[in-house]
């Protein structure tokens, strides 16, 4: 059933995006890592400089829907749309995330070869407000293991414990920044990887260096919480009680206070005022308000005005 859903998700994405640039090449889960995009960096840089900005705002980006459980390759090449982010102009791919369903984790692997795209990731809530920005600190180099090649990896947990919450993260943008493009990643030499695995002394040779490119391939894997091992970065939007930024709650009225109680507080306020203990009078009025005597504060103010 899972395989089938991958397939449908993949086909759906393909159908939605068209076959022109084929940004999401569907891969089987057990195939090897995608081949890193080996394109001359200078060529990609000039293509980026020449690329028109696609949109006037973040909310205008072409968001492609991702189905739950999607696994595939995000191709950020010179055919990808470009946008002037605050961190610099970049090719990007933008996605809308499944709204409901279980919470899940997004795993990103930016494939490294002679060059690598050092990714930035931006997450936005349902109102298109950024919630998280991932950058070079969050994408770390992981040497090849098993079927995985050299890559810069990050894991992002997306919370869906409150399905209708407007603060839920609904959009993901993958791009890169001027700061990232200025850097480079030192990869592990495969001969050293062998030596390390076999417990031998690695040869004294320099490791290959992958300069950061404006283009690349990022493998994207979405895994439901149940199957993901552990969240890397949890984000749970605060549950709104409508009082943020000084907003008042409509509030539910309490049960009416008994006349005896009301009379007691007024009497006590009078006594306090007689002793010129204004602070005590004020505390009594507040206490009376809390138990439901909404007239106590007014009563006190009137008494003060008379004097």
């Amino acid at each position: 059933m899972h395989r089938l859903s991958f397939l449908t998700a993949g086909l759906l994405i393909l159908a939605l995006t068209g076959c022109g640039s084929e940004p999401l090449r569907r891969v089987d889960a057990l195939t090897t890592s995608p081949k890193p995009l080996e394109r001359p960096i200078e060529q990609a840089r000039s293509a980026l400089a020449a690329a028109p900005t696609c949109c006037s705002g973040i909310d205008q980006l072409p968001y492609q829907p991702l189905e739950a459980g999607f696994t595939g390759d995000v191709l950020i090449d010179t055919q990808a749309p470009a946008y002037s982010f605050e961190t610099g102009k970049s090719f990007f791919r933008a996605f809308s995330l499944p709204a409901g369903g279980p919470s899940f984790e997004i795993r990103l692997y930016s494939q490294a070869g002679s060059s690598v795209l050092a990714p930035n990731a931006m997450l936005l809530d349902s109102r298109m407000r950024p919630t998280r920005l991932l950058d070079g600190d969050d994408f770390t180099y992981v040497p090849p293991t098993g079927l995985k090649g050299d890559s810069l990896d990050a894991r992002i947990r997306i919370d869906r414990s409150q399905p209708e919450h407007p603060g839920n993260e609904r959009y993901l943008i993958l791009y890169t920044s001027d700061a990232q493009m200025a850097g480079q990643t030192v990869l592990q030499h495969p001969a050293k990887a062998y030596a390390k695995a076999a417990g031998n002394e690695p040869p004294s040779i320099p490791d290959p260096v992958a300069p950061h490119s404006p283009v690349g391939v990022i493998r994207l894997v979405m895994i439901p919480d149940r199957d993901a091992n552990a969240p890397a970065k949890g984000y749970v939007p605060g549950y709104s009680i409508g009082q943020e930024m000084g907003n008042e709650l409509p509030g539910t009225p309490g049960p009416a206070v008994l006349p005896e109680t009301s009379a007691y507080y007024r009497q006590a306020i009078d006594a306090a005022l007689t002793q010129k203990d204004l602070e005590r009078a004020l505390r009594l009025a507040e206490e009376a308000t809390r138990v439901g005597d909404s007239g106590a504060k007014k009563y006190l103010l009137e008494r003060i005005e008379i004097r």
């Binding site: 899972h2 395989r3 991958f6 089987d28 889960a29 057990l30 459980g69 696994t71 795993r107 692997y109 992981v142 293991t145 098993g146 079927l147 995985k148 990896d153 894991r155 390390k196 695995a197 076999a198 894997v221 895994i223 199957d227 993901a228 091992n229 552990a230 890397a232």
Partner: peptide, 24 residues
Amino acid sequence: LKPACLLAALLVGGPALAVDFHGY
């Protein structure tokens, strides 16, 4: 045993799995 999950388990030697499994 689901392919995607197996792959994910293989791919990520992240902080959760602090034990390095190496071999030949």
